[in-house]
C-alpha cells in the first residue's frame, strides 16, 4: 500500500511551490527535505523548543506541529528569506552577529523568525519585553544573555524594519 498524495500550493520566501505530499508530511520536513530549505531546524518535534519556527502569513508558527497540507495557499517565510534579495543581512541578523547571539547556531533560525515578527509588532521593546519575545524558544548554548541584547540592538538599528518580506 503506497501512501496517498495530496496537492499543496504555497509561497515560500516569495516563490510559489506546487507539490504532492502525503497527508502526514510535516511542514518542517516538507521545507527541509522537499524544498531543501534546511535553514529551519528541528530540535524536539513536539512544539516546545521553537527551533523550527517559521512565519506563516507573518505569524510565527512551529513547523514541526503543522502538516504541509495545512498551509495551502499561505505565505511562509523561513530564515533563508530574512536577508534582502541582494544578501544584505536584516537588522535582526546583523544584531545577532554584533551581539554574539549565537554559538552552535542550531536554535538560531527559530529565534530570528520569532524576533522578526516580534519587532514588527513592538519595534521598541523594553528589556522585559525582549525577554518575553523570546520566552518560548530554547537555546542550550548562549544562556540567552546575548540573544536578549540582540533583540534590543536589532530594535535600535532596524528603525522598525525587521526585514523578511
Amino acid at each position: 500500500m503506497t501512501e496517498q498524495l495530496h496537492e499543496v500550493g504555497l509561497t515560500v520566501n516569495g516563490a510559489a511551490y506546487q507539490a504532492e505530499v502525503p497527508a502526514r508530511r510535516l511542514l518542517s520536513d516538507f521545507l527541509r527535505h522537499d524544498l531543501r530549505l534546511t535553514g529551519t531546524h528541528v530540535g524536539c518535534e513536539h512544539g516546545v523548543c521553537g527551533a523550527c519556527t517559521v512565519l506563516v502569513d507573518g505569524v510565527p508558527m512551529r513547523s514541526c506541529l503543522l502538516l504541509a497540507v495545512s498551509v495551502q495557499g499561505q505565505h511562509v517565510t523561513t530564515v533563508e528569506g530574512l536577508a534582502a534579495p541582494d544578501g544584505t543581512l536584516s537588522a535582526v541578523q546583523r544584531a545577532f552577529q554584533e551581539c554574539h547571539g549565537l554559538q552552535c547556531g542550531f536554535c538560531t533560525a527559530g529565534f530570528l523568525t520569532t524576533i522578526t515578527a516580534g519587532l514588527r509588532q513592538n519595534p521598541e521593546p523594553t528589556i522585559e519585553q525582549a525577554r518575553e519575545m523570546i520566552g518560548g524558544n530554547l537555546c542550550r548554548c548562549t544562556g540567552y544573555q546575548n540573544i536578549v541584547a540582540a533583540v534590543l540592538r536589532a530594535a535600535e538599528i532596524g528603525g522598525g524594519d525587521a526585514g523578511g518580506e
Partner: peptide, 22 residues
C-alpha cells in the same frame, strides 16, 4: 571580534547533519 562563522549560520547556510544527504 565578531565571529566569521556567523553570516553563514544566520542566513540558513549552516550544514548540520540532517541537512546533508538529501
Amino acid at each position: 571580534i565578531a565571529r566569521v562563522e556567523d553570516p553563514r549560520l544566520l542566513t540558513g547556510g549552516g550544514r548540520y547533519l540532517d541537512d546533508l544527504g538529501q
